[in-house]
Amino acid sequence: MSSEATGDLVLVLRRLGGTVTGGVARLGYMARFLGAILWYTPMALRRLHLTVREIYFSGVLSLVIILMSGLFVGMVLSLQGYEVLRRYSAQEQLGIVVALSLVKELGPVIGGLLFASRAGSAITAEIGLMKATEQLSAMEMMAVDPIARVVAPRFWAGVISMPLLAALFSAFGIFGGYLIGVRVIGIDAGAFWGQMQAGVNFWPDITNGIIKSIVFGAAVSLIAVIEGYDAKPTAEGVSSATTRTVVVSSLAILALDFVLTVFMFRGVGL
């Protein structure tokens, strides 16, 4: 009886240990992959049109969902924020509440989550499909490294697109907040913008938001290209890799957001 329990415990511990070492090994693999991407970056940048093309697919095609979501999130923030602020007769602070939460958190985070599900999954599916149909092998046999030709442009396109998308999300969110707060509820427009300007600093509030979005863009793109590159070359393999991209990169965004927030905002008052 007790030996059975010990056996179970050993099994649980072994599984836990396996998960931990597996995770660490995965991180190491990702770092190595990132190293390979960076190594081939000069080669990829020499053909800028490849990266521009990928910016079109991951950036331009994500615009509609980002702008729409930003607008709605801003409008909801404005309504909810007004509800709370009214209790303290601080309605004119609405501008700060909307702008700070968008610029520091919601723009990068929700923008990143949308980017992961719109562009990240598409990148994984595309690379996975190229692998399944031996296009990557074909490239290798033509003495062209797929990391330079296929992976690096997609990675950099994500790193470039994400901060622009996050800024657009925040800007449209603030516009949405303005529509509800000023046009519908009737807060004074001067107070709305004035309080916002007094309360939001370019450095560090906005710059930290931009840094966050660049980090998220790099994380999502890296996860997306790795999942695609490592996908099993079958239909099920590609579809499960696509799912994994969305799940893993969403978790990565939220975890990184916590870490970055701890580092960035704690020391501001010093």
Binding site: G59, V103, L165, V200, F202, D205, I206
Partner: peptide, 26 residues
Amino acid sequence: IDLWVGVFVAIGLGAILFLALKVGNL
């Protein structure tokens, strides 16, 4: 594609500028 990406980058930078000048106090 070049045109669309150009437009995208322009309005993206515009949004950052908007955040810096109109929302923030750069």
